[in-house]
């Protein structure tokens, strides 16, 4: 809980940042406060300012000059961020077993030959982006929303985990071989969705990435509920586990690998818990439906 006076100050600083008037001293103060209170959503006022800007941007937009578009395109292609570019055509035609560059919402790794030959449904490719997060009306406590720098790291890791030629199964095996990685089995709890489920998890604190593996976990109706991972960290209050990402399970008889997408740094994981939440996931789980859990 952020003390009201501190929250007011943070909002003031975030508003100054959103309109570009944050002084260096204030920027340092804000950084310190955000380290102390990372639960405050730092994007909301920046988004509001962006929306205001769009509202005033009334002139018809000139297209990007051709020379500049070419320059940007080249920069993206040669920059580090371009190294993990995926040719969607390749994604669609590679057998799943040999190229399980699967979506984070659990594309089966061990799939049938027929399934492997089938093209990726467009919907699944399109859903690879982050699943929307529930927000409270304005300055939502996004619980564990990543600070910008941390986010850039996680975004890069997210892309890396889906790059070409880095099958998820291989990545999982590589992580398991890391000296610092932790592993545990998931225990199925009483929820109906997990009654026939098995699973395990591997996590590398050094790389801040990991994978869950499931078999028999029920496919979820996307429009009704989703699975969400929570990572309990010894460095954090157990009331506020780290959001490990929202994911879907598609109908499958084989193993399903799900990359973990921790929203903030996990220092010392003690438990991984999968809950069932409303579509888009939640900021704070009421833990009303807990599917699986694994203690380190």
């Amino acid at each position: 809980m952020i003390p009201p006076k501190v929250e007011d100050r943070m909002i003031e600083l975030l508003a100054d940042r959103a309109v570009g008037t944050l002084s260096m001293d204030d920027a340092r103060e804000l950084a310190g406060l955000l380290r102390e209170y990372p639960e405050l959503d730092t994007d909301v006022l920046d988004l509001a300012a962006a929306a205001v800007h769009l509202a005033y941007e009334q002139a018809p937009l000139a297209p990007l000059p051709a020379h500049l578009a070419a320059r940007v395109e080249a920069a993206l292609a040669r920059a580090d961020v371009g190294r993990t570019l995926v040719d969607p055509g390749t994604l669609r035609t590679l057998p799943i077993a040999s190229a399980p560059a699967a979506p984070p919402h659990a594309r089966p790794v061990a799939a049938s030959v027929a399934a492997a030959a089938a093209p990726w449904p467009p919907r699944q490719v399109a859903k690879l982006g982050p699943v929307g997060r529930a927000r409270t009306p304005w300055i939502a406590y996004a619980g564990w929303a990543a600070a910008a720098a941390l986010f850039l790291v996680s975004a890069a890791l997210f892309r890396a985990s889906h790059g070409p030629g880095i099958p998820l199964a291989n990545e999982r095996a590589r992580l398991m071989a890391q000296a610092d990685s932790v592993q545990t089995s998931f225990a199925a709890l009483k929820d109906e969705a997990a009654k026939q489920a098995q699973g395990d998890v591997v996590w590398s604190t050094r790389e801040q990435r990991g994978f869950m593996r499931f078999r028999g976990l029920a496919a979820n109706p996307h429009d009704k509920w989703v699975y969400q991972l929570w990572i309990f960290d010894a460095a954090q209050d157990d009331r506020f586990p780290v959001d490990g990402g929202v994911f879907d399970i598609e109908p499958s008889t084989g193993d399903v690998l799900v990359p973990i997408q921790a929203k903030i740094r996990v220092s010392n994981p003690t438990q991984f818990v999968v809950t069932i939440e409303r579509p888009g996931g939640v900021v704070v789980s009421k833990r009303e439906r807990v599917a699986m859990a694994g203690k380190i």
Binding site: D43, G129, R133, F151, L152, A155
Partner: peptide
């Protein structure tokens, strides 16, 4: 655009 490329996975369709 490099920033956009790095940050795209943060896009939250519920937020905007």
């Amino acid at each position: 655009f490099v920033d956009v490329w790095k940050s795209a996975s943060k896009f939250d369709p519920d937020a905007g």
